[in-house]
Design a protein around this nucleic acid. Structure first.
Lengths: 227, 227
DNA sequence: ACAAAAACCGACAAGGTTGCCGGTAAACGG
DNA sequence: CCGTTTACCGGCAACCTTGTCGGTTTTTGT
């Protein structure tokens, strides 16, 4: 079952579990406001950047008191730690939801509809999402904030690991050349991450040309993997 | 003269001019402390991120009083505007200095030493510099800060324009296919920018594989440009 | 029903940041 | 040589952020 596998992968990234995992009302409500705080934190992160993220602002956005915030997250770094988990979870979920939905309607005849081409397009879509924007902020901020990096780096590595396993499972065609698939995945992520940042400077037309070139690279790698 | 051209390009990016452009002692000294303030600001930016950059910290690093800071930059945004110009200037200069130095000793026999391959390697080197790190911080912060974006975006577009002219001049072989050269340049920048951010997560080995694949792409584009 | 525990509330102090301003010393121009 | 401009100094008020804590409401277990 595809969905069951997806949930398993997602659960590995969010060990704490979401609101749906609890039965008692108190736990459920607690997890719910916890979630709403984290969601507000992501909003604040995306709108104000990491250093500009203030617990004050987060509490206001989430509609809870500062006391409630303190109950769930005793200090700023605790909030950040929770947010990191939340961001990686959302990012993975955002892509996988799109992906499993799209895989149900593929037509193997057209070359432009080959699953790895679709994956590149969908990944570009996911890179433009709010969830990925939050990831970008954290990744950049972690370059100078040791405390943040300490929490971020392991989470990023775990995400990468789970991601590769998911891709391995989604593309059995590449099964006999896993390093080529990893290269295609890494390459796609690098290009599109760079594109996200430089896109507004170079304009849509050049972005599309790069995107097309990227698809060419992925298809060549796919060809090489067949042999 | 190669160096003369370089200086012309650099001057377009730094319209205010550097300390060397003034004769009178007062102007010179003023420009000198202005420069040292901007340099300290870049340090602070790289170490604390954009939102964490405080005028207080900058003044302390530069070894000037807050009053002197206020004299040169009446408020934070003025400092930021000056810093943007300074960052783009440094970034361009960092690459070009390396580049003209390296071009003097190329050997056209070996394929790995073709000028565009060297350019890719040197660009990767420049991407890892402090100057580029500062650019990254500004580019990411500009995504949510309208005031910053207002100053950053035009500067980035100007940089891109000057950059392409420099590349056009440096690689006459591509002269008859400028759109392919632009694509190669855009592609390189996108990949290496993405690599800068994801590199620590995926590790050196995978970074090198991506880098090799990138060189392959650039060489194919160079081949295509010959016809 | 009642005590314990969990969730939540609002205020306070300490510290840092920004913008502003009155004042000083050095350099320029006539 | 003297008035004016320029470069530079350090303190003050207003504001925001973080961490902390005593108190209140709601849920749970018995």
């Amino acid at each position: 079952m595809v969905v069951a596998r997806r949930d398993m992968a997602l659960r590995r990234i969010r060990p704490n579990g979401g609101p749906e995992d609890f039965d008692r009302w108190q736990q459920r409500k607690s997890s719910l406001t916890r979630e709403s705080i984290l969601d507000a934190a992501v909003d604040s992160l995306v709108e104000s950047g990491y250093a500009g993220l203030s617990t004050n602002d987060v509490a206001r956005r989430a509609g809870v008191s500062r006391g409630a915030m303190h109950h769930h997250f005793p200090n700023r770094i605790a909030l950040v730690r929770g947010m990191i988990e939340h961001v990686f979870y959302s990012r993975m979920r955002y892509f996988l939801d799109d992906f499993v939905a799209r895989l149900k309607v593929i037509d193997n005849g057209d070359a432009a509809l080959q699953p790895h081409v679709i994956a590149v397009e969908l990944h570009w879509h996911s890179v433009q999402s709010r969830e990925f924007e939050a990831y970008l902020r954290l990744a950049v901020a972690a370059r100078n904030d040791a405390e943040l990096a300490e929490a971020f780096d392991p989470a990023a590595k775990l995400y990468d690991e789970v991601w590769l396993e998911e891709m391995d499972h989604a593309f059995p065609q590449w099964r006999n050349a896993p390093e080529l698939m990893r290269l295609a995945s890494d390459f796609t992520q690098a290009v599109q991450l760079g594109l996200l940042i430089n896109g507004s400077t170079i304009g849509e037309d050049r972005v599309r040309m790069i995107q097309d070139e990227l698809i060419g690279v992925v298809m060549r790698l796919a060809e090489a993997a067949k042999r």
